[in-house]
């Protein structure tokens, strides 16, 4: 696995803690991070938990899916959708969300933070 040197990896939870094709929220260094296991794509994603629309800590409770080939999450509050890859809002608003790299090792989920 290619590790980029200026990223710090922090363990968040066990893979089994995250529902398939759903998300959970982890508290890491005081930040709320939404972690998604997109089982159908066999991919993991992590984003900020706060939806920038109404500043609600809710994205981890949102439903995930795809728009075309773009994996996305929909905020449960007002169904604003965001790309899980780029963080761009896909519902036409100007705001976006932070995304984080994710690694899985020995059944553990690691989130990458830029140093």
């Amino acid at each position: 696995m290619n590790q980029i040197s200026n990223i710090k990896w922090v363990a968040a939870c066990n893979t089994a803690d995250v529902p398939e094709n759903g998300g959970v929220c982890a508290l890491i260094q005081g930040e709320q991070i939404a972690i998604f296991h997109f089982a159908r794509l066999n991919q993991w994603f992590a984003t900020q938990n706060e939806c920038p629309h109404k500043k609600q800590m809710a994205l981890s409770r949102g439903m995930i899916g795809t728009q075309g080939d773009e994996p996305k999450v929909a905020c449960p509050f007002h169904k604003k959708t965001f790309s899980l890859e780029s963080g761009q809002c896909l519902s036409g608003d100007a705001f976006s969300i932070k995304t984080y790299p994710v690694q899985i090792e020995n059944g553990q989920v690691f989130i990458g933070f830029e140093l």
Partner: peptide
């Protein structure tokens, strides 16, 4: 849901079709 998507749909679902 996964079986529905695999047999009757395409792609990986979204916040409209899931509920």
């Amino acid at each position: 849901y996964d079986l529905a998507l695999d047999t009757l749909g395409k792609g990986h679902g979204c916040e409209v079709c899931k509920p």
